[in-house]
Design a binder for these strands. Sequence first.
DNA 1: ATGTCC
Length: 467
Amino acid sequence: MAKLKLTGKELRKIGYPEGPVISVAITVMEQHYKHHSSADALALLSNILQDPAAFSSDEQLSKIAEKLIVPVSEEIALLPAPMHYAVYGSEFIEDGAIRQMDYAMRLPVTAAGALMPDAHQGYGLPIGGVLAVRGAVIPYGVGVDIGCRMCLSILDIPSAELEKKAAVFKRELIDGTVFGAGGAWKTMLEDEVLEDPAFSEIGLLRHLHAKAVAQLSTSGSGNHFVEWGLVDVTDLPGVSPGRYLGLLSHSGSRGLGAQIAGYYTKLAQEICSLPREVQHLAWLDLSSEEGQEYWTAMNLAGDYASACHHQIHKRLIKAVGGSLLARVENHHNFAWKEIHNGEELIVHRKGATPAGSGVLGVIPGSMTAPGFIVRGRGEPGSLDSASHGAGRQMSRSKATQSFTASGLAKLLSEHKVKLIGGGLDEAPGAYKDINAVMNAQDSLVDVVGKFYPKIVRMADGSGPRED
DNA sequence: ATGTCC
């Protein structure tokens, strides 16, 4: 007999509401009613929807019923005015980002916040926003690409080799990376992170394991990149000042993190009823089962993103016959438990680099502008944070209209940069001037080195769909 | 950012 297979679409068609009930219903039915026909299963689900209370004593079906019995929850009130927060480089920051941060500073769980000089409008918390809250975690305060991070390897290969053997470095970059939204390696790779017990402990993660396996060590799309370049080290522990050959990558947790973010954001919005303008800032209580699950899943996505970078670096470094002198890496979409002013807080950095005292990080520029290796100054006003890049000054669609392929080619040639993939939406002019952004945060970080991209790979730019 | 819900 064929195993029961249900889709969210079918459930919505018979009137099931958006939210966790869809996935719970699919899971329960496929596990415990697998020999039912699809029509019988849907009929049963329809009955549960009509009168959920009648199924509340059924061992399995009660799981679906209780998701349908939505308690009337009172809307949580915001503070009448935003708490004060520091803004770095306010002259670069669009009003929309300030407005969003003002709302975040009115949540009753908020303890402190700050806005970085690359800030721009996002969903919920602005990109470049830092928000510290008490006893809760906000899935959209972390963002969709959980654990999106930078990883820089400084190699023992003489820097002049990059130009001399450019064709080899380019070929290995193409052969050694996978880009694109659905991107996956053809052969299955292994990694310790795939054995993480969280994959078997949390229902959602069990279902995402196969996707995580397939997408391990891939880069995704958008502003993600892997690039060879020149590193000028001025003050990095264990590395003599000078010029080196380096590998820099920017990517996150792929479909795994995106699905975790989506699922727990929906869940948070159901549990935490907020005024419409701030509903994307819905939080999960850290002491609740849901909050703890998100925390575990978020940390897994962070470890997964890190593992992806390490795999990419290991493969490429081996391919060009180098060895590692030093590595600098950091998440910039994540939440951490930190002590600020003697109090443990959950600090969300959504597009912000950790910059506690002495903490190293990488802040990328663009394909033609240098990235910066930085050492945090531990500035309390920024909650130990700095920007995560130059920040967009133009939407993707506007950039596509504003720039031309020939103009981009000329710019790349002037900077002696080779670009594989990429698109006008990622043209350097779409970003703020990284030097101005760095000046605006000189109280937050010290610059200890610079990275000049030379051979850059990105996903193919957005264009007409080919499928 | 992901690729349209396990």
